[in-house]
Computed example of a mutant assay.
Amino acid sequence: MKGIFFVTNIQYLHDLISPIDKLGGGMFLIHYIAPAHMVGGIMIIFGLLTRWAIIAQLPILIGAVIVNFMGEMYSQNLLLALLTLSFCVAFLFYGSGKHSADYFFKMEQ
């Protein structure tokens, strides 16, 4: 959902990453964050290559927490980023579970 929101409101995404844009790579970040959220989110929902999708999400989520402290603090965004980061770290260690596409394909072999 956040990826779709970023694609439709690209100026909002640009405003969010403006505090760290001075370090360089701002255009890369804009083109990485939205597609990684959309593709990674779909893969996590279905449980397909869950750990790989979470590894792609971790830099974005850690950056979301850092941006809230560097720029203007949005408490709702910070809470959402911390909650999502904690869930992703838990699933990174736990895995996708028995009701995932990974488990289904593993049992088909």
Rank of each mutant, 00 (worst) to 15 (best):
K2R: 05
F5V: 09
F5M: 09
F6P: 00
V7P: 00
T8D: 05
N9D: 14
L13R: 06
L16I: 14
I17Y: 03
I17L: 07
I20M: 13
K22L: 03
K22G: 13
L23T: 03
L23R: 03
L23D: 06
L23H: 13
G24W: 08
G24I: 10
G26D: 04
G26N: 03
M27R: 06
M27H: 03
M27F: 11
I30V: 12
A34V: 02
P35S: 03
P35L: 04
M38H: 00
G40W: 02
G41N: 05
G41K: 03
I45S: 12
F46L: 15
F46S: 09
F46H: 08
G47T: 08
L49A: 15
T50H: 04
R51W: 10
W52K: 07
W52R: 11
I54T: 05
I54W: 09
Q57I: 06
P59H: 14
I60H: 01
L61K: 05
I66L: 12
I66M: 12
V67N: 08
V67F: 05
V67H: 04
V67R: 02
M70Q: 10
E72V: 11
E72P: 02
M73W: 09
Y74Q: 12
Y74P: 00
Y74A: 07
L79F: 13
A81R: 01
A81Q: 03
L82Y: 05
L82N: 03
L83N: 01
T84N: 08
L85C: 02
S86K: 03
F87P: 00
F87M: 11
F87N: 04
A90L: 14
L92W: 10
L92H: 06
Y94Q: 12
Y94C: 06
G95T: 04
S96G: 09
S96L: 07
S96M: 03
H99G: 10
H99Y: 15
D102A: 04
F104W: 13
K106F: 13
K106Q: 14
K106Y: 12
M107L: 10
E108Q: 14
Q109F: 07
Q109R: 09
